[in-house]
Simulated scan of single mutants.
Amino acid sequence: MSALDDLKAEVAATISIEQSAVTLIQGIAQQLQDALANAGVNDPALVELTTQLKSNADALAAAVSANTPAAPLASGDGSAPQA
């Protein structure tokens, strides 16, 4: 494998891990929210914690999305010819 292929594989693995982290954080926030609702608990500190978890997950998801390169265009895609 070339160094470029190694780098591509590492980037793909990192993106996958980051997306898994987003899913995990969102799941924890939802489970906490569900547990609080089922128990009839309305503790402002716990509600704030749930909100913060969701916000952190959203921020991580946005960062992953913003820093994920677009897939390269295939040749013959109708784009302008290169010089």
Rank of each mutant, 00 (worst) to 15 (best):
Q26Y: 00
Q26L: 09
I28S: 02
A29K: 01
A29S: 05
A29L: 01
Q30Y: 01
Q31R: 10
Q31D: 09
L32W: 01
L32T: 00
Q33G: 04
Q33N: 09
D34T: 10
D34I: 02
A35Y: 04
A35D: 08
A35G: 09
L36Q: 08
A37E: 11
N38M: 08
N38A: 15
N38S: 11
A39D: 14
G40D: 12
G40T: 10
N42C: 11
D43Y: 00
D43L: 04
D43H: 00
P44E: 07
P44M: 03
P44Q: 02
A45Q: 10
A45W: 02
A45Y: 08
A45R: 09
L46I: 03
L46G: 03
V47S: 05
V47I: 13
V47L: 09
E48W: 01
E48V: 04
E48T: 04
T50D: 10
T50A: 11
T51G: 05
T51P: 04
T51R: 12
T51Q: 10
T51E: 07
Q52C: 04
Q52N: 12
Q52A: 13
Q52G: 04
L53D: 00
L53R: 03
L53C: 00
K54Q: 07
S55N: 15
S55H: 14
S55K: 14
S55Q: 14
A57W: 02
A57I: 00
A57N: 11
D58R: 14
D58M: 14
L60S: 03
L60W: 03
L60F: 05
L60V: 04
A61N: 14
A61E: 11
A62V: 15
A62C: 15
A63W: 06
V64R: 07
V64W: 05
A66G: 13
A66Y: 11
N67A: 08
T68K: 12
T68I: 13
T68Y: 14
T68G: 06
T68L: 13
A70N: 15
A70E: 15
A71D: 12
A71I: 10
P72T: 10
P72A: 10
L73I: 11
L73G: 05
L73S: 13
L73A: 14
L73R: 13
S75P: 08
S75V: 13
S75M: 14
S75L: 13
S75D: 14
S75C: 13
D77S: 11
A80L: 11
A80M: 08
A80D: 08
A80P: 03
